[in-house]
Amino acid sequence: MNVSQSDDIIICEDVHKWFGDFHVLKGISVRIGRGEKVVICGPSGSGKSTFIRTLNRLEHHQRGRIIVDGIELTDDLKNIEAIRRETGMVFQQFNLFPHLTVLQNITLGPIWVRKMKKSEAAELAMSLLERVGIPEQAHKYPSQLSGGQQQRVAIARALAMQPKIMLFDEPTSALDPEMIKEVLDVMRELAQSGITMLVVTHEMGFAREVADRILFFDQGQIVEEAPPHEFFAAPKHERTKLFLSQILHH
């Protein structure tokens, strides 16, 4: 685990993954710097969600190496837990716990994983709810909230673990159009804080504005990788051009 040589927080080397016979990830190699904001886009089925899910072992890769914050992701349960503690994840379907209140959803991780006091965890949760703009919803249950509010709670829940990396798996894809902005606003604000962010999304406006780098996935490979201005203005690959023309002029 020789990582002192680089300041990259995520290092992927030739990562492969199969679902049965289907080769989902065909040799992903990428390095992500500390504090970098990376947007991952691409057509559906291109492996972008699968890739982001391998980074905290919700899917396991069958070949190659993944090193997160100096810890290599192997079958070692201790490593997996350590990486999950440093990594927050926000899902397309929110995945809030329906049997717990908003506050309990957020304090669960800090209390049981970070061994925080209940009252400290509640304070932390309240300050995060302030930050995502819905402190008044603390004692409601998730089903009483709108989709946008639920996703903001999910972001607060991930942040409560004070992660170094935030993974977003299509955070706005399940939302009504008018709720997308409130979630993106929270993510923009978060991007200012210097945390490392990996975002799978189709929101090209967000990508253009927030991303340091855009990774374009197609058929399990990274076909193009560039800073946003370059990516949008002068895409090199034919597949990227086609994708952009379809997504920007629909």
Partner: peptide
Amino acid sequence: DRGQSEAALALGLR
């Protein structure tokens, strides 16, 4: 839902 245990695992719960 599978997403429930995934979300819990992603928090680092055992």
